[in-house]
Simulated assay, not measured.
Amino acid sequence: MSDMWTGEKVRLRGVEPQDWEGFQDLARNTLDVRNAGLVTPPRSAEGFRAWTAERAGRPPGGEAFRLVVESLADRAFAGSVTVGETDSRAGRFRMGIGISRAYRRRGYAAEAAGLLLTYMFEEQRYHKCEVEVHAFNDASIALHRGLGFVEEGRLRQHEFFAGGHHDVVVLGITAAEHWAVHPRPPLR
Rank of each mutant, 00 (worst) to 15 (best):
T82I: 13
L31R: 10
T6M: 12
R43N: 09
A175N: 06
D25M: 14
R104S: 00
F160L: 14
A64Y: 09
G7A: 08
M95A: 01
R154I: 12
E111H: 11
R188H: 11
L38Q: 13
L116V: 06
H134W: 04
R125Y: 14
M120V: 06
D138M: 08
G172P: 07
Y103A: 02
S88E: 13
P17C: 10
P42I: 10
T30G: 13
K128Q: 14
G96A: 14
V131N: 02
F65M: 02
Q18G: 11
N29P: 01
L116E: 11
F149A: 03
A90I: 01
A109Q: 00
R94M: 13
T40S: 09
F149K: 07
Q18S: 14
E152Q: 08
E46T: 04
A112L: 05
G22T: 03
A73F: 09
G79H: 00
L187V: 11
E159S: 11
E21F: 10
S71H: 10
T40M: 12
V39S: 02
R156F: 03
G57E: 11
A45E: 15
R55Q: 04
H127Y: 08
Q157M: 10
H165Q: 11
F23A: 09
R34N: 04
F136N: 06
V131K: 00
A56G: 00
R92I: 08
A64C: 09
Q157V: 05
R156G: 01
D138R: 13
A90Q: 01
G84P: 03
L12Y: 05
V81E: 09
Y119D: 05
P183E: 00
R94C: 14
S100W: 07
L147A: 01
E130M: 13
R101S: 15
L67D: 01
G148S: 10
E151I: 07
